[in-house]
Amino acid sequence: MSTRSQLTQQLGVVAGFDDPRVDLEQYRTPPELASYLVHVADLQGDIEDRTVIDLGCGTGMLGLAATLRGPRRVVGVDIDDAALGTAQENRRRIAATSSVSWVQADATQIPLDPSDGVTVVMNPPFGAQNGNEHADRAFLETTAEIAEVSYSIHNAGSADFVESFATDHGGEMTHAYSAEFDLPKTFEHQSEQSRTIDVELFRIEW
């Protein structure tokens, strides 16, 4: 098994969005953060020989990270066809050998009914845009329906909400991890060339 540092290096070739959409809050998940999430999930036994579904996969960073840790298969779901095209290119860049499928669909209305053990990994929208508030809730609702276990990235300070949501939907938040999310300037409304925000990773058993 590659180390977390090696996994980060492998993910360095994963391209971001060619034309990111502000309404979908499309930011490239940093390789360091993706490798952290997947490394932790793998140590918990939640990647190898399992089906991994990357909800709102964008250009595939989390799902492709999972392919490098021996899953049974990986499925990436995103509403943006252009992003999925980049995800397919990214698969070739990292030379993934695990089975990978890309599905164009609304991640909150997923057209999948997986029957085997499913781990969901996701970096859902934080709901920062007007009209997009609580977007992460819809992603969690889908996750509660299809996953045995999930790993998700949220704004720092979301622990009470995520834990309460999990409990109300028959789940249990078992682990919480602090991390950082490096955000380069992506949209015109951003005044800084880059900034780092605090985030949290949560593991939930459903």
Score class of each variant (00 low, 15 high):
154 H>S: 04
79 I>H: 09
97 T>Q: 13
183 L>S: 05
31 P>M: 09
86 T>G: 07
191 S>W: 05
65 A>R: 05
92 R>T: 09
69 R>V: 06
15 A>M: 14
27 Y>W: 13
198 D>A: 14
8 T>F: 03
5 S>E: 12
18 D>I: 08
205 E>S: 11
3 T>F: 07
29 T>D: 03
116 D>S: 11
161 F>Y: 13
17 F>K: 05
7 L>A: 03
193 Q>K: 14
57 C>R: 01
67 T>E: 08
62 L>V: 02
137 R>C: 03
126 F>T: 02
199 V>D: 01
109 Q>S: 12
132 N>P: 00
132 N>T: 08
147 A>V: 00
87 A>R: 00
166 A>P: 04
33 L>G: 03
111 P>T: 04
10 Q>P: 00
85 G>D: 12
68 L>D: 10
111 P>L: 09
130 N>E: 14
180 E>S: 13
159 A>H: 14
156 A>H: 11
59 T>Q: 14
94 I>R: 06
74 V>D: 04
188 E>V: 08
60 G>C: 07
74 V>I: 12
167 T>R: 15
160 D>K: 12
135 A>K: 01
110 I>W: 06
183 L>E: 15
30 P>T: 04
123 N>H: 02
184 P>F: 10
57 C>L: 07
95 A>I: 00
33 L>N: 06
118 V>F: 06
142 T>N: 07
34 A>I: 04
74 V>A: 10
48 E>P: 06
39 H>K: 09
157 G>L: 05
114 P>V: 02
130 N>T: 13
112 L>C: 12
15 A>T: 01
32 E>P: 01
123 N>F: 02
186 T>Q: 09
4 R>Y: 05
71 P>R: 03
12 G>D: 08
75 V>F: 05
77 V>T: 13
116 D>W: 05
80 D>T: 01
62 L>M: 03
32 E>K: 10
121 V>R: 01
39 H>M: 10
174 T>H: 06
116 D>E: 15
76 G>T: 02
113 D>E: 11
57 C>H: 04
73 R>M: 07
118 V>G: 10
